[in-house]
């Protein structure tokens, strides 16, 4: 199923490096939230300049708890997955979806400059959109099956298949 020949070594190491860096970013975002007992997506959602759906999510206390939990552990799991090369394809795709949610809740529209928390100057394309696309692209390249734990998983699977 895998054709190593599609990638030369430089490309493989380059993409693996990108994967690990993305993983680091996600892992740290998740760990910070985990370590801060007062952290909640409340303020982020409440301030959302996007559709009312986002701020209404903040108003539902039990839903907010679920969001906080999924966000924290989602980020940690995606981060670990990307760094370790463990179920990396799943991690990349989930990461892309998660970051797209961030993108949609703070869409960098022509009017949105005042809403940006980061101070970035952005129009339509922002960090979140780029991250989402990078992760999506990473999911097309199964680098973890060469460098990462997926090498072991998929090898065993392949052997069983045979």
């Amino acid at each position: 199923m895998l054709t190593k020949s599609n990638l030369n070594l430089t490309q493989l190491y380059g993409l693996s490096c990108l994967r690990v860096l993305m993983g680091w970013y996600f892992l740290y975002e998740g760990v910070v939230k985990f370590l801060d007992p007062n952290w909640s997506a409340f303020a982020y959602l409440k301030n959302s300049p996007g559709s009312n759906i986002w701020s209404s999510l903040a108003d539902n206390a039990s839903l907010l708890n679920v969001i906080d939990f999924l966000n924290t552990w989602g980020l940690i799991a995606i981060g670990l997955g990307l760094i370790l090369g463990l179920l990396s394809k799943l991690a990349s795709v989930s990461g892309a979806i998660l970051v797209m949610l961030y993108y949609l809740s703070y869409p960098p529209t022509v009017a949105s400059q005042n809403f940006q928390l980061t101070g970035d100057h952005v129009l339509w394309v922002d960090k979140n959109l780029i991250f989402a696309v990078v992760l999506l692209v990473l999911s097309f390249f199964p680098t973890s099956q060469f460098i990462g734990i997926d090498r072991l998983l998929f090898k065993q699977k392949n052997s069983i298949d045979e």
Partner: peptide, 13 residues
């Protein structure tokens, strides 16, 4: 080695 190549990254983290 290739399977665990990125594990040290967690150490650095």
């Amino acid at each position: 080695i290739k399977t665990l190549a990125t594990v040290p990254v967690l150490g650095a983290f």
